[in-house]
Design a protein around this nucleic acid. Structure first.
Lengths: 240, 240
DNA sequence: TTAACCAGATTCCTATATGATTTTGGCGCC
DNA sequence: GGCGCCAAAATCATATAGGAATCTGGTTAA
């Protein structure tokens, strides 16, 4: 973490805000390894602030599910997702994002097609020149999906989605380079349907995108949990 | 707020935990009015702790959407929901809860029917003797819905739902007594479908329950935003 | 009457200090 | 060689202190 880089000339007041941004970025970029203990004293000295604002930030990061707390033992970064959690996360995305895409594909000024096109065009250019494709892909993906959630007009859904920090958690699973081209193609399909004000098409395109995305990330667990052998439908009721 | 009532004999270590519970309860029970400023010094003295743990708790409560922060001006309790936010909240509930009810209505040991029956039976008894029906109804409703979310097996969905604090926010709108009988009847319908391992029926019953619940809470805004006059479908496209 | 201004007091926000708990390293014992 | 115990060090968690910003009320000028 860089030493504070305060927004106003140091010794100011925005310590908590700066520390939050720094620590969030450090966790997101893997600078703090998943599951590692966090030494409050080290962090505070590294950022040039006292321990008080660091502790406040840690409380907030716990609400963001970016750190976990053990009473008396302090804070650690959250460990990597296991396959069960990854499935839960993508089931949640399948619940809210296709709905949001449908809601965004309306013939109103809230339609986000222009912003999505701009985002896609910008990222296509970035892809050709960037030295850190993975980082840029995460940023693009985050903006793209949030734009659609915002256009849904439902702040509760948007906030709940944001709080899952799905991009952070999923991309921590995937240290290898990914083929941004596939993601861009799927994003294009979603954008086209939204631009055409086609709710059904937008919902379907988003559903396909998320399912494909899950398949790509689930490769990190290749072979870990082999599917159960087929047992057929249950023979009799076990409840009641 | 009572003066600390620490879990271990006071002067211990669980200050943050205690303070969090106290402040959360104070906001939930309306002891701290919606939109009111929070005086950190007053709270810390009232609870018998220093300002440090109080400030940490406030950061956490902000993540819970129970307080809002203005830099330099301190913290306030979140204001009451307006109609737009109430609609957003119930749209979110309509996205996740019917799905959870469907997921819970399975012929597996995760089926929560027994726990739901127990919860309902207990509340029916409580209704007859309680002096604070509203408080008990909130508690019952919270437990009932969380039980179903938990039984869905999806921790992300359950957590996202919990973070909305929908019971807190909606019941703050409703200082008047409510007829718990209606809620109990709808809960019974949901429970019966889950007990019968009827996913379609459980989903439908939950959808009906949430829609009815919205109608009841929306009465708080009676006449505030009259529906727009019917304008018919739009004549021509305005996007692109 | 209204608006602007300005000290005094309050309140926020960070820093530092201190007691309590956990971790670490080393030694003896089995 | 491995395991358990104990003191020292490190770390956590809260309390207290002080600088900086904001709010309050009273006064003056337009």
């Amino acid at each position: 973490m860089p030493p504070r880089q305060s927004s106003d000339t140091s010794r100011g007041k925005a310590a908590v805000s700066d520390v939050y941004a720094s620590m969030r970025a450090a966790i997101l970029e893997g600078e703090m390894a998943p599951g590692a203990r966090i030494n409050i004293d080290a962090v505070s000295r590294s950022l040039g602030v006292s321990q008080t604002p660091v502790r406040e930030v840690l409380q907030r990061l716990e609400g963001d599910n970016l750190v976990v707390y053990s009473p008396g033992r302090g804070y650690s970064t959250t460990p990597l997702l296991d396959l069960v959690e990854l499935r839960s996360l993508f089931e949640f995305r399948l619940l809210v994002e296709p709905w949001a895409a449908r809601a965004a594909a309306v013939d109103r000024l809230a339609n986000p097609a222009a912003a999505l096109e701009k985002e896609l065009t910008g990222f296509r250019k970035t892809m050709k020149v960037t030295k850190d494709l993975r980082q840029d892909l995460v940023a693009h993906d985050t903006r793209f999906h949030d734009t659609i959630l915002a256009a849904s007009g439902n702040s509760v859904v948007r906030h709940a989605f944001g709080q899952t920090h799905c991009h952070l958690h999923t991309f921590r699973l995937y240290p290898a380079d990914v083929d941004g081209a596939i993601t861009v193609a799927e994003h294009s399909a979603v954008t086209d349907a939204i631009e055409a004000c086609d709710p059904e098409g937008a919902e379907a395109a988003m559903t396909r995108h998320i399912r494909n995305s899950f398949d790509r990330f689930a490769q990190a667990f290749e072979g870990e949990l082999a599917p159960l052998e087929e047992v057929g439908p249950p023979r009799k009721r076990i409840i009641k």
